[in-house]
Design a protein around this nucleic acid. Structure first.
Lengths: 164, 164
DNA sequence: ACATCTGACTTTCAATTTGCTAGCTATTTG
DNA sequence: CAAATAGCTAGCAAATTGAAAGTCAGATGT
């Protein structure tokens, strides 16, 4: 794995430190996919269209940085492992919310598509991304949040829970 | 300026589109500095330690993407221009807030330093980053927000206002 | 008048990172 | 035993990044 020389490693600015971990073309997308439930190497690869070696590198780096963990599982009798969010990784949700909101406001899709929506499962309504449901005003915990991504599926995805 | 081949350009996912603009090692740091009031080429360069050519490239790209604008000004009788936030650039504040919060929680500084603080100028109190002051519960507009970055200066910075 | 300075870039070129394509390694299924 | 599958690793070319030097236009010093 190629060494990474973070510019602002351990810098006093927390934004700089966050960018050291997340500031490249793939990390945030990997984490976005992890939060909608992707866990396996080839799902990430096929979904993102990222090269194998880069994906392998990014996943390992995110594991090292403590945002993902490898957890073993059995599929067809063989032991494999999947990449699951840790608490630190799951805590990136506000960042993803903010990016989604900004992207919706200030960038546009090539082909006109239904926008992504955040749904509060308890009340069933769409809300803007945040920690409280716009509609029913109650807190919006991760476990009650789903994302509707119409270009992927007509059904909303529940957000992945971090491994404890 | 080298061509940029965004992976998810115009993609339906707003997070992907945001990452197309912001997903590299420098853009978010440039924008962070712009939001605390940096406007000039050499301030960015000296502050970030970024190479000239990369900075030039990033600034131009952010101008093209509509997050910054060049505005002319006069210094020592000569016309120069500075880079100022547009509304789209200023609207990145929630992203910076989220990154700052995450960075504070989940990464650590090399040398122990006073953490960054968000201050509500109206009530004078520190608040967690968001759109409402934790302390006085009133809304926290950008114009009433300042960042205290103790490793840079003992005085808080007011956030830069976008050009209109 | 002339050299120097300064801000904001370009240019050059080497080092690093990315992306493609091809393996490779277990294990299980046919 | 052959093929398939998941998850990598290796090799190499292309793109991006970084350090350093060069450019350019107007100001300033002498």
């Amino acid at each position: 794995m190629p060494p990474r020389q973070p510019r602002s490693a351990g810098a006093p600015c927390p934004i700089g430190r966050a960018v050291d971990v997340l500031g490249d073309r793939w990390s945030l997308l990997v984490l976005r996919n992890a939060t909608v439930g992707v866990t396996r190497f080839d799902q990430f690869r096929d979904d993102l269209g990222i090269a194998d070696n880069i994906l392998s590198n990014r996943l390992n780096r995110l594991v090292e940085s403590g945002l993902l963990t490898k957890v073993p599982y059995r599929d067809d009798g063989r032991t494999r492992h999947e990449y699951r969010l840790t608490t630190a990784g799951a805590d990136l949700l506000p960042v993803l919310h903010a990016l989604a909101h900004w992207g919706e406001q200030h960038t546009s899709s090539a082909e006109p598509a239904e926008p992504m929506q955040v749904i509060h499962l308890t009340c069933g309504h769409t809300t803007s991304p945040g920690d409280r449901c716009d509609h029913c005003k109650r807190p919006l915990p991760r476990s009650e949040e789903a994302w509707l991504r119409p270009w992927q599926s007509p059904d909303p995805f529940r957000l992945a829970e971090p491994v404890t």
